[in-house]
Design a protein around this nucleic acid. Sequence first.
DNA 1: ATTCTAGTATGTAGCGAACT
DNA 2: AGTTCGCTACATACTAGAAT
Length: 338
Amino acid sequence: MLQKPKSVKLRALRSPRKFGVAGRSCQEVLRKGCLRFQLPERGSRLCLYEDGTELTEDYFPSVPDNAELVLLTLGQAWQGYVSDIRRFLSAFHEPQVGLIQAAQQLLCDEQAPQRQRLLADLLHNVSQNIAAETRAEDPPWFEGLESRFQSKSGYLRYSCESRIRSYLREVSSYPSTVGAEAQEEFLRVLGSMCQRLRSMQYNGSYFDRGAKGGSRLCTPEGWFSCQGPFDMDSCLSRHSINPYSNRESRILFSTWNLDHIIEKKRTIIPTLVEAIKEQDGREVDWEYFYGLLFTSENLKLVHIVCHKKTTHKLNCDPSRIYKPQTRLKRKQPVRKRQ
DNA sequence: ATTCTAGTATGTAGCGAACT
DNA sequence: AGTTCGCTACATACTAGAAT
């Protein structure tokens, strides 16, 4: 055993310091390390910093010189970089000024775009003020908004309402394109929808984190998740955003779309127009169309990347266009198709 | 005075016809 | 066959003027 001693860089799990330690065997390095860090030898072992592989005497000779090792005591574990990332993430639970300042400092000098981006993202993530709700609590969030908006929920509500209103506006532009008798019926349908929308406050609750569980699309903290393209069950990219967090997210959120699964202009409106023209004594089920045009029944909140603009090639359900003919003809309740 | 509405502006994607 | 162009669809933002 005239092996040359091997020197390695050793650190303990909880210590930020590293020491150079040399030894001819695993056992020797371990012993010196425990001495150095004042740790009990019993139950302790060495592993590679890189991936957490535990060192054995057999393996020791093939460990490269100056390898980075971690000294673990009884019960401790190290899974390589992964553990470091876990610890890094834990900084997000309670972002400290120290962390923010350090990141800002690094960002100032950073030239490489990729690292720049990483640091900027980190700062962006840490400089959120999700809990704040009023203008007084988080003035930067409101920068550029009219003074009438005094709470984040209030503004988000408004922005949702105005999206929904614009759908209504588009439907409203159609009666003039149909004949006189159809027009009258169309206006009646429109009136019903309008009334419902008013009573629902234009479904502004979808964006309001303060709204009741079933009527909002976000978590109580304000997190929205992309619901994925119209023809998929979920978002493969797992997009998410919290417009309540800071001004940038608020603005970015405006690029997220409410996408009609069954398309408004290509399908729903033409079907509605047709239904009114051809009603032939039947009663158009305006509530069905209301659901398609204005509610989450047919609307998906999507990141712009998941917003497909191709024709969706979906049709309205023909069995729901007219109300079941109850009063006049039926003897028994109308059954759904079997 | 504030809020709402309706019209306009902005910007990207898809698609088919016309062109090279 | 590949490219360009014009049109329509998707969407939201902006803004002047009406309504409350």
